[in-house]
């Protein structure tokens, strides 16, 4: 049984110099959507990759560059490192062309994690938008691995179209479970291709079954989506300290030294990416912070 280790301890254990990428080999590639791929990596030297749900790695493509990508695998299977990458920039576009056997460099894991241990005993509501499901998947794995430790578990997922949904097979599996409420919605669909909900993800919140006084909310998606999700959760009676969000900014070093990811007084790479909402609410949603 894996124990959730605090980020600090792991980060230092991986490499003595956190700026040096360690080679990892692509084991498997799965196409999720037209521009998003999930990769399974194994370390070249056979070492394991322990991490906490919500943490991220810096992925380096030889000579091309490096990008922060959250880890999306099962924290209790540290022998495989899983990343879901959307091709949106120079480096991610190149990453998405990786084939099994190719090598990339990995630095990490970095950053804070979803409070899956602290939330034991609570209901859990997970709200994901778009590729925001990827950083939440390790938390979902953890919660399902330890299902008995939580109350009701709700997963609300919004995507652009049915074709833009990640992890379709797993979503179907989770939907099939009796101990998880899974609601999926898309922004647009044709009746012949989609039998599910159409509407923004926030419309799922009033219908979700959880106890607002004893629930922890984990939210990840575009900032606007998170903003409206928080409003809906507040309408359900959640306090700000029951809500956790994951933030994204430009990152270069991932160890709090390069200054790029500053978000008010926070460094997203080391104080985040996961924040308890009450700790950032003064700046959240402020323009160009």
């Amino acid at each position: 049984m894996a124990v959730t280790v605090k980020p600090q301890q792991i980060a230092l254990a991986v490499s003595t110099d956190p700026m040096l990428p360690v080679p990892y080999r692509v084991l498997r590639v799965r196409r999720e959507t037209s521009d998003t791929f999930t990769f399974e990596f194994g370390s070249v030297d056979g070492s394991r990759f322990p991490f906490a749900p919500g943490q991220f790695n810096m992925l380096y493509l030889f000579g091309v560059g490096e990008v922060p990508i959250s880890i999306s695998g099962d924290p209790e299977r540290p022998e495989i490192l899983v990343h879901t990458v959307r091709a949106v920039g120079t480096v991610t576009k190149s990453l998405c062309k990786l084939k099994p056997g190719d090598i990339i460099g990995v630095r990490g894991p970095f950053g804070s994690s979803w409070p899956v241990v602290e939330a034991a005993g609570d209901d859990i509501v997970i709200v994901a938008g778009g590729v925001g499901l990827a950083p939440l998947r390790p938390a979902i794995y953890h919660i399902l691995n330890h299902r008995g430790e939580y109350g009701r578990v709700v997963l609300l997922y919004g995507a652009r179209t049915p074709g833009d949904m990640l992890y379709k097979k797993e979503l179907a599996e989770w939907r099939g479970r009796f101990d998880v409420q899974v609601e999926v919605t898309v922004d647009a669909a044709k009746p012949d291709e989609w039998r599910g909900n159409v509407g923004v993800v926030t419309t799922l919140i009033p219908r979700a079954h959880f106890d607002p006084h004893h629930v922890t909310a984990l939210v990840c998606g575009p900032e606007i989506m998170m903003r409206f999700t928080i409003l809906e959760l507040q309408k359900r009676g959640l306090r700000d300290d029951q809500i956790y969000i994951s933030m994204e900014r430009n990152m270069k070093c991932a160890i709090g030294l390069c200054g790029h990811c500053q978000y008010g007084p926070n460094f997203i790479c080391k104080d985040g990416p996961v924040f308890r909402f009450d700790t950032v609410k003064e700046i959240f949603g402020k323009r160009e912070i």
């Binding site: 922004d187 647009a188 926030t202």
Partner: peptide
């Protein structure tokens, strides 16, 4: 929210 296509690239 859908008008601004929040999940678009």
């Amino acid at each position: 929210l859908r008008l601004i296509d929040i999940y678009g690239s």
